[in-house]
Computed example of a mutant assay.
Amino acid sequence: MGQKTIMPAGLAAMLVTGVAAFSATPVNAHFLSIFAPLAVMDGPTETHVDVLFWHPLGGAHVMDMGGAPEEFFVTHRGERTDLSHRLAEIAFTSAANTGQAYSVPMTFRTSGDYIITAVPQPYYEETEDIFIQQITKAYFNRGQLPTDWSEPLGLKAEILPLSRPYNALVGSTFTGRVLSEGEPVAGAEIEVEYIAAEPDVTTHTSGAPTVSEAAGGTITLMSDANGYFTFGIPTAGWWGFAALGVGPDVEFEGRELSQDAVIWVTAHDLE
């Protein structure tokens, strides 16, 4: 295809596609979430969208975001609309604590895809003495009209879906491609997370977890030589994939920066 591949620094050249492993990363990995109750809407819908940095599997610790995202926008029918001026700071409460997060009112009016994207400020993780910046996309659709989902957004780090990310079926697979400045990333480490403690966007609280934690720790994949990975979807709901340290920026304020690409997709039972 004439494209170069990029090997993230510090990752072993073990290129495995679609094979899940269990890493030594602590259970309930850090994930930036962009959450609304429904990913697929039949008619015009008004709702709030919560943006929070937390551990979604168990509804555990919420991290203070430290400030509004550097960028926050929606892509719809090829047009990008800035939403940062509409963000409101909120206190989000999980089963473990209350942390600083953000919320935005959204109206999904016209048919098509809505890709909501956040580029947060780097977060300092004291236990590891590094900064983390998770460039995050979440996909929504109104009216069953596909318009934007298969196009990259030109982010420094992103995961491009190879199948529609808002209507995967339980028992099927999701395939994505890890990109750094538009180029595929070989051997990227990808953490997988499930929102088991679903947020309530009216009260900004998390519900009780509906599933237990995965045995052995965070589910982890590796992208293949062309940046692809595949994951079999075991249950309905929101699934997140974070490709760690794949962005071009590796330092912030004199410390290591992990510039991650995150994508959220939804799966449904076939009824």
Rank of each mutant, 00 (worst) to 15 (best):
D113L: 12
W239F: 13
A118S: 15
W54V: 01
H30G: 00
V262W: 03
A243L: 11
G78A: 09
W239I: 12
P26F: 11
S163H: 06
R255F: 14
F131E: 02
A168V: 14
S172T: 15
F53C: 03
H55C: 09
L38T: 03
D113N: 14
A188N: 07
E71Q: 15
A157I: 07
I34A: 05
V27N: 08
Y139T: 09
V250F: 04
A88W: 00
M14R: 13
T210Q: 13
A267P: 00
P165V: 10
G187K: 06
D249G: 00
H204R: 13
Q3K: 10
A13C: 04
I195S: 08
V178R: 03
V246R: 02
Y102M: 02
M222N: 14
G247Q: 09
T220A: 13
G67D: 08
G182P: 08
I90Q: 09
T93P: 04
D82F: 03
Q133R: 15
P44A: 14
F140T: 06
G58Q: 08
A243S: 13
V27K: 09
F140K: 10
F229R: 02
D260H: 09
I190F: 01
F131P: 02
G216W: 09
S212M: 04
F73I: 02
I190D: 01
P152Y: 06
R177P: 02
F241V: 11
I130N: 07
L244H: 04
P209L: 11
E79Q: 14
T218D: 00
N226C: 01
R86W: 09
E126Y: 05
S223G: 11
M222E: 01
A261Q: 07
T218M: 12
G247R: 09
P8R: 09
F35Y: 15
Q134K: 03
G58K: 02
S103A: 15
E183D: 03
E158M: 10
G67T: 08
T175H: 03
E125L: 15
T75K: 13
Q144C: 02
F241N: 05
V178M: 04
E256A: 13
W238V: 13
A214R: 03
T210N: 10
F131N: 01
V62S: 01
T230M: 09
A208P: 00
E46F: 06
W239D: 03
T81F: 02
T17A: 06
G207T: 07
H61I: 11
T110K: 12
S23R: 04
K137D: 04
G217S: 07
G171W: 07
L257F: 09
E158W: 08
E253V: 01
Q133M: 12
A29N: 13
F73R: 02
A20I: 14
M41I: 06
Y123P: 00
D42P: 00
S84L: 13
R164N: 13
M1E: 13
S212G: 15
T210H: 02
D260M: 04
R80M: 13
A214N: 05
G143T: 06
V262T: 05
Y139E: 07
A196N: 14
D249R: 12
